[in-house]
Simulated scan of single mutants.
Amino acid sequence: MKRIEVEKRTILLGLAGSHGYGLNRPDSDYDYRGVFIAPKRFYLGFDRIEQKDSGWDEPGIFSFLDSNKDTVIYELRKLLQLLAGANPNVLELLWLNQYPVLTLVGQHLIKKRKIFLSKKVKHTYSGYAFAQIKKMETHRKWLLNPPQKKPVPSDFGIEDEPPLSKEELNAFLEYLYNLIRGKIEFLEQVEQLYNLLVADIDFKAVLKQYTLPDETLEYTQNLTHSRKDFIRLLQKSQSYQIALREWKAYLSWQENRNPARAEMERKSGFDLKHGMHCIRLLRSGLEILQTGELIVDRRIAGDVDDLKAILKGNYSYEQVMKMAEDLMAEMEKVYEKSNLPYKPDLEQINELCIELVEMQGW
């Protein structure tokens, strides 16, 4: 869809990112996130659209979006799916302070925002925080012990035949994932395990990110009816592809680092922005479990100065990691006591979707 078509059917557009958190500086970018309801053909025909995240140089209605690359406007159904999954970046869209665009339909969505809060936030917020920790740890490793050379297959014991390509690896791991899911899908007594592996955890991504451990190789061979030498090659190829991916990420990091951020990172020994976002996410998730409310603006939450202190390098790497560890432990305690439901009511969300589409009209 063209930009002007999306903007005409936008029901809500908020100022997110650092401005939403109250952590913006004079040079901070403007991050806009919004919701639109697609026209009739996208609901009743073959056309599909999930979001508009480019094309802001096209003619439009909202001049403040002109050429702004940090803008995403989600189609309603895509947004509701992300909200039901407790996606932290999307949940906060309904709790922002500033909405440059807010229609009556958008107001009705905000009025219903609490139906999306559930105990799933414990998993999603801690998961997003852990991703920030992984980035922190990776950058710290590169700072203290940078890789010296591009990895080659022989480093991983691959001598006589070429390693499996990324596409070959992913195809086999997709096959392995489907086999494992099929093994547990119809067993009622392991419904919780199935939900954990298929719904609560991105098990497919885990398979693709980490090498198969030695103790699982025989089982994998039997499960997939593969040759033993193929399974060994699979494991070695995984190690090689992971190392190659890290080497490329290191080169990209070196090339694209913001100079000021790189200097702060050099002085402190870790990426301060990732550290701050890790703590912000954990505190936000904890607050939701405790109060049933999401506080996006950290000035209102009362910890904006503390988060800015992390950004300034006033806390050491060890201190930030200890803060994260304590917050995760607190989330574990609060999780069971929380009054939130374990998962959102999908029927209620479906009814809301119908209400909003009918209110917007075609």
Score class of each variant (00 low, 15 high):
Asp53Leu: 11
Arg280Ser: 09
Asn339Ile: 10
Lys236Pro: 07
Tyr43Thr: 08
Glu137Cys: 04
Asp297Lys: 02
Glu218Ser: 13
Leu117Phe: 10
Ala171Asn: 11
Val72Phe: 07
Leu169Ile: 06
Gln189Glu: 15
Ser316Lys: 09
Val90Asn: 03
Arg77His: 12
Phe130Pro: 00
Ala131Phe: 15
Thr10Lys: 03
Asp31Ile: 07
Ser268Ala: 13
Lys337Met: 05
Leu346Val: 14
His123Cys: 02
His19Met: 09
Ala16Gly: 06
Tyr335Lys: 08
Tyr43Pro: 04
Arg261Val: 14
Asn97Ala: 06
Val304Asn: 04
Lys267Tyr: 03
Thr220Pro: 11
Ser63Arg: 15
Val206Leu: 11
Leu12Glu: 02
Thr138Met: 08
Ile4Arg: 15
Leu294Phe: 00
Val6Gln: 03
Leu282Pro: 00
Leu346Asn: 12
Met323Gln: 11
Ala84Gly: 14
Gly106Trp: 01
Phe116Ala: 04
Glu287Tyr: 08
Gly14Ala: 14
Leu356Cys: 04
Ser67Asn: 15
Arg140Tyr: 04
Arg298Lys: 14
Arg298Gly: 00
Leu173Pro: 04
Trp142Phe: 12
Glu188Tyr: 12
Ile49Lys: 04
Ala262Arg: 14
Thr138Tyr: 07
Thr10His: 04
Asp202His: 11
Tyr125Leu: 00
Gln81Glu: 13
Val101Trp: 00
Arg280Gly: 02
Lys308Val: 07
Arg257Ile: 05
Gln254Gly: 06
Ala260Lys: 13
Lys150Cys: 14
Phe130Tyr: 12
Glu168Ala: 07
Ile73Asp: 00
Lys2Cys: 04
Pro153Met: 08
His139Trp: 06
Asp70Val: 02
Lys149Gly: 06
Ile4Ser: 14
Glu336Val: 13
Thr224Ile: 10
Met276Asn: 01
Asp326Thr: 02
Leu117Gly: 04
Ser252Trp: 09
Asp31Val: 06
